[in-house]
Design a binder for these strands. Sequence first.
DNA 1: ACCTGAACACCGTTCAAGT
DNA 2: ACCTGAACACCGTTCAAGT
Lengths: 240, 240
Amino acid sequence: MPSASRPPARRRGRGRPTRPVLSPERITDAAVQLVEERGHDALTMAALARELGVAPSALYNHVETKQDVLRRVQDHVNRDVDCSAFGVLTWDAALAAWARSYRDAYARHRPLVQVIAVTPVRGAPATVAMYERVAAGLRAGGWPPELVTDVVVAVESFVLGSALDTGAPPDIFDTGELAASAPEFTASVRARPGGDTAAAAFELGLDALLTGLRARLARAGAAGGPAPEPPAPDETSPPA
Amino acid sequence: MPSASRPPARRRGRGRPTRPVLSPERITDAAVQLVEERGHDALTMAALARELGVAPSALYNHVETKQDVLRRVQDHVNRDVDCSAFGVLTWDAALAAWARSYRDAYARHRPLVQVIAVTPVRGAPATVAMYERVAAGLRAGGWPPELVTDVVVAVESFVLGSALDTGAPPDIFDTGELAASAPEFTASVRARPGGDTAAAAFELGLDALLTGLRARLARAGAAGGPAPEPPAPDETSPPA
DNA sequence: ACCTGAACACCGTTCAAGT
DNA sequence: ACCTGAACACCGTTCAAGT
């Protein structure tokens, strides 16, 4: 329905239009809408052009490649990632909230996981804004600057892997004819409670990751970084 | 050079050959070799057929789709994942060794990450064998069966996300013109030590994950029985 | 049953021609 | 500068015809 802004759309003649009909922004918006309404398989340069009432080749006056379009869509998706807890909750609670929101966003856009993992943030303002919020929250929580990026990347790796996992079919671990050769694994899979198993694994991993990060900060912070926040409530320390 | 097993390869006539020239195994082997030698982009049905001295359509007598070929290649890759530490080292040391080997294998085969995350293990013997080894190791380490799969999935999610991260270009976090709008993040990126940054983030995350899992097992295991009560609500819950 | 060869319905991208 | 339209070099897959 927000395809309103388009004029009567009569057949265009051959040459240059009096006013440009395309722009990188219009292309990005159309791409996002296309993906949102019909899924990532529907995002082809031809379909995108059709949506915009234009010949496919016209797109290349405004974007470089399809990869470029994906980069733009991906930045848009990052706008949906909720970073609002940083500066409000403790760094670990905020990190957990961010991770959940981040996973949800890419569970809805699984094909973009490959894109975000590999695309420079340069020229992706929403993405940079997200990282800024997270980095500031971690710094405020007492993390030394040289570790902040690694923490972000580690959590992000877990989040993106978990987002991919949401695409697994329910029977992914059915060993079938191989059951006899894998008794322990088969039994474990059977013992797993029903429900949203991807969510259960994600929450288990997230909890472990945060517990470990708290312990790590306690070690790193002890060396004398900036004001350590209220230390995480004590946890069983690892028996080495 | 191991393309030896092929006979003189004279031009085949039109009809059915006296003896089948293809088999699912021969196709899988050729696909693995192709990927190993020329990368995943080189794996097309046409190239595969050429490698096997056959018309592309002939492949479809033995495999269902290209996805089917990828599934087979993926199972092969899992043979390279080293699970040998389970039953030798403690469960957590073995899990770490497995995770490192697993990450390395998929860093070399990044395009298969999407495949493994979503493909049923049925009919993938190497994959099932790997999971069996891991599950048995965790069980022996004291993990209750109903948690084993979640632990495996959580670690796997982190591993696969980290494998994708190895494909990131060195300048991925260059904020460029957006630097001014993201001072904390830009400073953190600058403060990051050089070297293999992907490996540093992976090791930080792996250490945290394992520390957290040890703590979790201590809680779960402390209850003694195979069905421990739900652990005390954890301390990350936001204070609203 | 298992191959060839032609064909189908796509892709992303380039480029000359037009205004 | 910015569009159209034709063309290029691919894809994966299907299917009739052949033996």
